[in-house]
Design a protein around this nucleic acid. Structure first.
Lengths: 347, 347
DNA sequence: TTGTACGCGTTATCAA
DNA sequence: TTGATAACGCGTACAA
């Protein structure tokens, strides 16, 4: 690893001059020396030492991306197709802007906070924060923060949020389901906070607006941990039978439920209609193809990163950016079954 | 951001003492001052400046993870379930060892090389290198390198490889397919180098060993780019009809092919048997559930990271670590269809 | 047991 | 147009 100092020695000039050439401070250097230095630079393949540069400039060119994993969910957060697509969008944007991405995953907000302050990253993108998590991080960390999918009114005073019109997404879908003739519609999710709550609210508004009464039991709560999933799925399938349609909070759950139903000889959509949310590979490759609410996940990541980048340049940005959803009508939602026909097939 | 210097001033002592306490050089400091410093440290919530520390110690505590994306494949590499699971394994291991992960994705080997030398990361994990890519990086970068899934004999002199017994994986599966009575078996992939070549070789060995002649046309080459995929799928489906079984190079392709076949009224496994490779969510959630070759992707990431970590500590490790595969027999491979019955269903 | 002084590689200020 | 020098924050050899 050759340093500026060495280069200066070999060329019999000062480090300042070399540095000036490197940074293209053209006016300050004669064409002659400029050429000479440039040539030598190429020859020895000089690369600056980032640590030294950062120390001198007090910035890091690193953007921290912290994901908070939920203890009750997957063991391996990044396996969620949603998360990987999101990271893809973020990474690409950050890289194209000449920054670097440092990925940090933890279940522990405290650890995340220590981590970001240690690395004094220039900015922070947060995902998976629940309750006042985001707020707590923002009190410690004084540089720009962009949260993704956080529902915290209080937080918006301290950071930007990039979200989705979750409520409208399920509202539109459930309206569509109702327009197909369904009256008994369940909602399936693993919890009822943040994004999931917003999606639930849309479901509830749609059915109540249509004069259908919402009862607590209409909320099917799935337990996705691997040691409970089979038992939970058994229960989900049983309880689904009281309904003619299930609005699932994600494509993953929709596809998981459909596989479990198929295993029990119940056909979709003949026996029961299923709708998802997210519109990812899982649903589009399923047959029958999943009717779902589309969101542009990669764009979510891109917008989050772009917004942070703007703030880094000192530009003002909106506090809250809400991306739209769109219905994708495919093959898993049709008219409800007649009476007690579940579309059983021989298994 | 408080510095050691400031702390020393406030406490009326030298930076050395403070530094010693921080690094637990117990013998060198009196209990009294130790306590005093510790208390103050907690109070002001001191975090060291990583840039300064790295500069002084000439190490970074960063492990670079560089993914080379193939131009002819997905636009968003990380969306591949394989890649995300792999990264999950790597990240977890690195984090638990007190290191940090810097993710860098590029199609351009040159850019990757510039990147790693700029950041003088302590070690490197490389994925997606083809041909002599890995070798080229290793000539530039003089610290430990671990490659994942690289087939380069020459390279093993310069870096460690963590791979899979790909050849045996397809060999075993194709043997199984043959044992079900199949004689016309195609192989589907998007290319024929590296991992894909190894998997192809296993397929070829199995069929030739069973007295079946391999013809070039038995290699179904899919074009996965989004603007070509539909046309390519049409062709794949047509050509599949000459066979009773297709060995696919990945679960993703297996599921994609099955969806396309279903759309054309051809049923799996009644009309044609399909086998995958990888054993991920896509195949396990599909119905009928995919018969596939299992590999532990997360472990691959974990082992790669652990190996690198060992090398960082100066320990010797194996040059090449080959993980095993295992057949997962589910429902997409059965006896071949009789004559020209394709299991057509009304669509 | 504690303190002084220097080096790490870069950028920036100011003088020559 | 160029060069000497300080500063960034930390670790450490060596001196006190």
């Amino acid at each position: 690893m050759i340093t500026i100092k060495e280069i200066a020695q070999r060329l019999n000039m000062s480090t300042t001059t070399v540095s000036n050439v490197i940074h293209g401070k053209a006016g300050e250097v004669s064409e002659e020396t400029k050429r000479k230095v440039q040539e030598f630079l190429d020859e020895v393949d000089y690369v600056p030492n980032i640590n030294a540069r950062n120390l001198a400039q007090n910035e890091s060119k690193i953007i921290g991306v912290a994901l908070k994993a939920r203890a009750d969910k997957y063991e391996n957060l990044i396996m969620d197709p949603f998360v990987s697509e999101l990271i893809g969008g973020i990474e690409e944007t950050i890289r194209n802007a000449g920054y670097f991405m440092m990925l940090y995953i933890s279940r522990d907000t405290e650890k995340i906070m220590r981590h970001v302050s240690t690395w004094n990253v220039d900015g922070l993108i947060l995902f998976g924060m629940i309750g006042d998590d985001g707020l707590r991080v923002s009190t410690k960390y004084k540089k720009p923060i962009v949260c993704i999918d956080t529902y915290s009114i209080e937080g918006l005073k301290h950071f930007t949020n990039v979200g989705l019109d979750d409520e409208k997404g399920t509202y539109d879908m459930v309206k569509h389901i109702i327009s197909c003739g369904h009256k008994r519609i369940a909602f399936l999710s693993d919890n009822n906070t943040g994004v999931d709550y917003a999606r639930f609210s849309g479901y509830k508004r749609a059915i109540e607006e249509s004069g259908i009464e919402y009862k607590e039991e209409d909320f099917l709560k799935i337990r996705p941990k691997s040691d409970e999933i089979e038992e939970s799925l058994e229960e989900m399938c049983k309880r689904s039978m009281d309904y003619t349609a299930v609005m699932c909070v994600s494509d993953l759950y929709a596809v998981t439920l459909m596989a479990a139903l198929t295993d029990r000889g119940i056909r979709v959509p003949e026996g029961i209609s299923i709708a998802g949310f997210d519109d990812n590979m899982l649903g589009s490759l399923h047959r029958p193809a999943l009717t779902t609410v589309h969101q542009d996940v990669k764009k979510k990541g891109t917008v989050a990163a772009q917004t942070l980048l703007k703030q880094l340049k000192g530009e003002k940005t909106k506090r809250q950016i809400i991306l739209p959803t769109r219905l994708v009508i495919r093959d898993t939602v049709t008219r409800p079954r007649k009476s007690s026909f579940y579309g059983f097939s021989s298994v």
